[in-house]
């Protein structure tokens, strides 16, 4: 087992494998990257870069999408 790190995803702590990318995180959460927008430490990460961005301990990730609204 690789070493695990703690990241905060949508306000909740999650344990993920060290070296995990944002794309790995989405896979772990069973989320289609085409359906979410990802913010890592307040910076938007574009879809093509999701696989290149490696998570670090304490990173804050926001995963957002469109919901009903007026």
């Amino acid at each position: 087992m690789p070493e695990a790190i703690t990241v905060v995803v949508n306000g909740e702590e999650r344990r993920v494998g060290a070296q995990a990318s944002l794309l790995d995180l989405l896979a772990l959460l069973e989320l289609d990257p085409r359906g979410v927008v990802v913010e890592l430490n307040r910076e938007i990460v574009r879809r093509p870069q999701l696989g290149e961005k490696t998570l670090h301990d304490g990173d804050r990730v926001e995963l957002v999408h469109f919901v009903g609204g007026g």
């Binding site: 306000g11 909740e12 989320l31 926001e62 957002v64 469109f66 919901v67 609204g69």
Partner: peptide
């Protein structure tokens, strides 16, 4: 119109 909100990770 639509709003932008966090994905509900318990109901993905």
């Amino acid at each position: 119109t639509v709003a932008v909100r966090r994905v509900d990770l318990d109901r993905t």
